[in-house]
Design a protein around this nucleic acid. Structure first.
Lengths: 335, 335
DNA sequence: AGCGGCTTTGCATACGCATGCAACGGCGCT
DNA sequence: AGCGCCGTTGCATGCGTATGCAAAGCCGCT
């Protein structure tokens, strides 16, 4: 019963059920022509042999693996796991298998990573924030549908969805200005990240439009540690900023800890801190982080629809979605 | 160049290079017999056609997919992503592809989850904390090597590795008692989880040995929210505990927030809080959580060795590892 | 009874690759 | 020159499944 050395094949089932291998195959193929009696005989035989169709062999003839390559970077911060969780659940619920492709280190996709694509994935979804443009081109050259999350690219057969970063940055600038902050600082993430490029430049532009200078600027890497470190630097000087906008929540948490614990500042009385993403942790009382909500669930839902559409018609025109983010007011900013 | 409708096959490469398909295959097979000249001609042709061997087709004949099924539950807490990250990196570095199998809901593996196993994974690694014993048996019946993380099971062809939970729980009990705590409470995780069963009973036993009563007990589900909720309940009564041991870090964070923010308690002066796992966040100043270190990196390293060993010899005797955890003293407990 | 149309079935083949086997060629040896 | 050996190559086949095609069976109809 347990631990057969060799898994049963369709031929084994066919023999047991007294039918041809084709008949067995048809019993496991949606919409194939089989009589009710044959089907039940076959299914019974299959059950007795614990037979399940070999997805690998099947995909060889159908030219569909049902595998979706998911390119992602580190799961270090709180955001990536949240996104990954949502995405893989969604894929599973649509009957697709996520196949992990590790990215990030050096922003390039090395051999090990690309090896995953040898499994003939039906499509590739890129969620890693900083995959180099060269790597993206490499993926495009693969001749496989490509879905990009978190960046906007215009190219044939490439769909992308990316929260409206500039809008999010503007919302923060306007809210801070309206609340009377005058010495506003910005802590950016990894400069190679698309989201950083959009958020940083839009925030600067919005401040300029409002007639406010940028009091100080730091460069982190989207990690808690970098947020902590840069906040210490930005807040140490004489003209301490009265507000700090961080490129993501993880850095905002680091900044929050630095401000309160290391510098003894009161948040939001002495300093307003605003993040970006609204990860689940942002709502924890320890942080109560005011932030921009990156509507992950909505985005993933749309992404999955885009995926199905693209799989159904590889030649469909490329699509770009930019869902709007939202300012979530909690306790870390005086707004 | 970009976006060929059909990927090049070994036959295409063979034609271009003027050799047989076998020769092409051998050029991509480690240790096969090919002359230097043929190899370079073939590799050049392969490059021009962007040819990469089809891993699916290859596995059909080699009977090895290089895919490792990874059964995991939610990535909600801080621990699972940390573990998953470490594990998938390790797998990738050994040239293996993780194929995700979603578990948890109802502790069972539903059809969608099992479908992943139709891809002929070479082995299955279970990391989900609460997969029902029935589901485990189902996996064993698959006839595929099974590696269990976080639980101990004795069965042929099943290896397991699991941090020494009883030892961890004892360390906490002893440290709390030695520091003079007398009203010690315990907040357990999901009762169906193996780790909870070990931690809970060992903690109770250790307290009893030390001659201390269990001041109060709560039942959470390993989530931050449940930690918050149960802490409020446990700490509300008249004889407030002076120490609280939580079944994992996530619940400890929730308890910490509840104690400090909602109840206005000073930690560790009014109340000591100890967690289990030592996730990266535990070191953040906001929490500075005293906790038991679950040596994830070491465990994954051992797990990967066990995996290789098992793949090399499916009939090797089963192995059980119980690496010892360690008490990490930070600021959340008066020890 | 005879016929056309529909459903069900099996046969044969293809999917892309790895590999056993035999054939071939070059080499050093006697 | 003749022999045997080894490195290299191609041929043929098999992995487990899906599917086009034709044969077979069944039905209701005239």
């Amino acid at each position: 019963m347990a631990g057969e050395r060799r898994r049963a094949t369709a031929v084994d089932v066919a023999r047991l059920a007294g039918v041809s291998q084709s008949a067995v195959s048809r019993c496991f193929t949606e919409g194939a022509s089989v009589s009710a009696e044959t089907r039940s005989r076959v299914l019974e035989a299959a059950r007795r042999l614990s037979y399940r169709p070999n997805a690998i062999a099947r995909s060889l003839t159908t030219r569909r693996t049902n595998l979706i390559g998911v390119v992602m970077g580190d799961l270090d911060g709180p955001f990536q796991p949240y996104l990954f969780e949502t995405l893989t659940r969604g894929l599973a619920s649509r009957g697709r298998q996520p196949l992990l492709v590790r990215g990030d280190p050096a922003d390039a996709l090395d051999g090990t990573a690309m090896a995953a694509l040898d499994y003939q994935v039906d499509a590739v979804v890129v969620t890693a924030g900083s995959v180099s443009p060269a790597a993206i081109r490499g993926l495009m050259a693969l001749g496989v549908p490509l879905l990009l999350y978190g960046r906007a690219v215009e190219a044939d057969g490439v769909d992308s969805i990316c929260c409206d970063n500039p809008l999010g940055a503007r919302l923060v600038a306007q809210a801070l200005a309206a609340a009377g902050h005058r010495r506003i600082a910005y802590l950016g993430g990894r400069p190679t990240a698309f989201s950083e490029q959009e958020r940083g430049s839009a925030f600067r532009a919005a401040l300029a439009e409002l007639g406010l200078p940028l009091a100080a600027a730091g460069e982190g890497d989207y990690s808690y540690d970098s947020g902590h470190r840069e906040a210490l630097r930005l807040l140490a000087g004489p003209d301490r900023p009265d507000a700090l906008f961080c490129g993501n929540d993880a850095m905002a948490f680091g900044a929050l800890d630095a401000a309160r614990t290391a510098l003894g500042l009161r948040v939001p009385d002495d300093l307003s801190i605003v993040g970006f993403d609204d990860v689940p942790m942002a709502g924890w009382p320890s942080f109560s982080l005011t932030t921009i909500r990156n509507p992950v669930e909505d985005i993933v839902a749309i992404l999955l629809d885009m995926l199905e559409r693209r799989l159904a018609d590889p030649d469909a025109p490329p699509v770009l979605h930019r869902p709007p983010p939202l300012l979530v007011r909690r306790g870390s900013a005086r707004l």
